[in-house]
Nucleic acid binder design. Sequence first.
DNA 1: TTGTTATTTCGCTAATTACCAAAATAGAAC
DNA 2: GTTCTATTTTGGTAATTAGCGAAATAACAA
Lengths: 89, 89
Amino acid sequence: MADVFNALSSPVRRNILSMLKEKDMTAGEIADQLNITKPTLSGHFNVLKTADLVVTERCGTTISYSLNTTVIEELMASVVGLLSKKDKD
Amino acid sequence: MADVFNALSSPVRRNILSMLKEKDMTAGEIADQLNITKPTLSGHFNVLKTADLVVTERCGTTISYSLNTTVIEELMASVVGLLSKKDKD
DNA sequence: TTGTTATTTCGCTAATTACCAAAATAGAAC
DNA sequence: GTTCTATTTTGGTAATTAGCGAAATAACAA
């Protein structure tokens, strides 16, 4: 869960997730819309993959990224845990 | 909300919130339990205060810190937003 | 005012992170 | 095999962050 919060702490990465929420996209499509280079984007994707927030699927020459909603549901449970006493994060 | 995610991205700070969840505490009490110096802790408190996650109340010579549950409720709404389409974070 | 305790700010170093350009890799088509 | 396109890794610098000790500040008590 630490990795998830870390991933979400970057505005760029929340932006990426926001785009993936609408539809699956390739790394190139996202790099075009945000104003960052592909190597930089690749680094952000690594953080998101470490947090298990996105999953990848190769479609021919491109790689399609999509949101892993399961982890976001777990995140939600963790945030609820911030409010309820006597259990570990 | 960016500040909130940023604050939560540190294990030390999540630890602090977890302790405050159980009961209000002073900076000194928290510094004793975690293994960090008071200046370092003070820095973490600044991040938590910037995110509005904690509120302070001075009681004589000590300052009592407590959790601001309102912001955590807003955080919860933001996480839900990660799952629902067509609205900004 | 002086002294005591609690917390913060200052000044600094070490570690981490963000970013880019260029080179390397992976897969598909030929 | 070669070539083309998409993505990642490498190598580097600049910016940010975490941590500490020492000094400064705040509130209270005497």
